[in-house]
Design a protein around this nucleic acid. Structure first.
Length: 269
DNA sequence: CGGTCTACCTGAAAGC
DNA sequence: TGCTTTCAGGTAGACC
């Protein structure tokens, strides 16, 4: 479920419950995530969590001996509950804290992961990532220069983690609509002026979703277990065949890199 | 190397 | 109703 806003909302939601709390126990109920969960994560036991950070869609729970890296994949979510709360189906990993709370990673499809990173190391998953979209490192100029001679469709280009992290399918569709750019346009043929429009739109779109608590889908729940809410109006995603809010023309859906791509053939060129 | 495709899973929804 | 098929927000790694 999670795109970057959902991951950030999860991070903000779990932080007050677990920051500076000691991890009393790690329970790996099912180690068969995207990669096997390594025994190294037990190193966090008996240590306090000194930082809860996000890089791209990865969450890092840091203690003195290293960091647990968590990724929610496509169907994962994190909840903080009382440790006595019965486990739910697909609660694969849990961290029990000294305050009696349990942080549980629930992930039906198990596309997510739980890995370990030693201090001063940068896990290979994190080492090749592009800039964070909400920082000053993500600029139109940078993306423009990186896109020269790239034949990839602009939509796939902005979803490439080496270009910018955290832009998933929903927000790629939404951002391109707002910027008036056709999702199939060659990235290398998009002008600097258009990147100067697109980049701030990506930032605003993601930031707005974070502020509003993340775009919630299906059973996405806040980290404390309260149901999320549909905060952000999606302009194109999931609206195939419905009228464009701007020009009323029915929205088109195509597949791009096997992903559902919805756009307005009149507003996006 | 750049670009494309597959694979990893479960479950909800659509199709029959 | 029940069985089968399709599709889902991610992304590393294999492949051409």
């Amino acid at each position: 479920m999670p795109e970057l806003p959902e991951v950030e909302v999860s991070r903000m939601g779990i932080t007050p419950h677990i920051l500076q709390q000691t991890v009393v126990k790690v329970n790996i109920h099912n180690p068969n995530m995207r990669w096997p969960v390594p025994d190294e994560v037990y190193q966090i036991e008996a240590l306090p969590v000194v930082a809860v950070e996000r890089r791209a869609k990865y969450l890092l729970l840091t203690c003195e001996l290293g960091s647990v890296i968590l990724h929610l994949g496509m169907s994962g979510n994190l909840r903080v509950v009382d440790k006595a709360e019965p486990l739910k189906k697909h609660d694969h990993i849990e961290f029990i804290f000294g305050n009696g709370k349990a942080l549980r990673l629930n992930d039906p499809r198990r596309f997510g992961c739980c890995l370990w990173q030693a201090p001063n190391e940068c896990h290979t998953l994190l080492s090749k990532l592009g800039p964070e979209p909400l920082t000053d490192a993500f600029t139109a100029k940078r993306v423009y220069e990186q896109s020269r001679n790239k034949k990839t469709a602009i939509k796939q280009f902005i979803m490439d983690n080496a270009v910018v992290v955290g832009v998933g399918n929903i927000y790629a569709n939404e951002s391109l609509f707002k910027a008036g750019i056709h999702p199939k346009r060659e990235a290398g043929k998009v002008s600097l002026a258009r990147y100067e429009k697109l980049v701030p739109i990506i930032k605003e779109t993601l930031a707005a979703a974070i502020v509003q608590g993340g775009t919630t889908l299906k059973d996405f729940a806040q980290s404390d277990g309260k149901p999320g809410y549909f905060a952000q109006q999606l302009l194109v995603y999931g609206r195939k065949g419905e009228p464009c809010f701007v020009c009323k023309k029915n929205l088109t859906e195509i597949r791009l890199g096997q992903r559902s791509t919805v756009f307005c053939s009149q507003c996006q060129r």
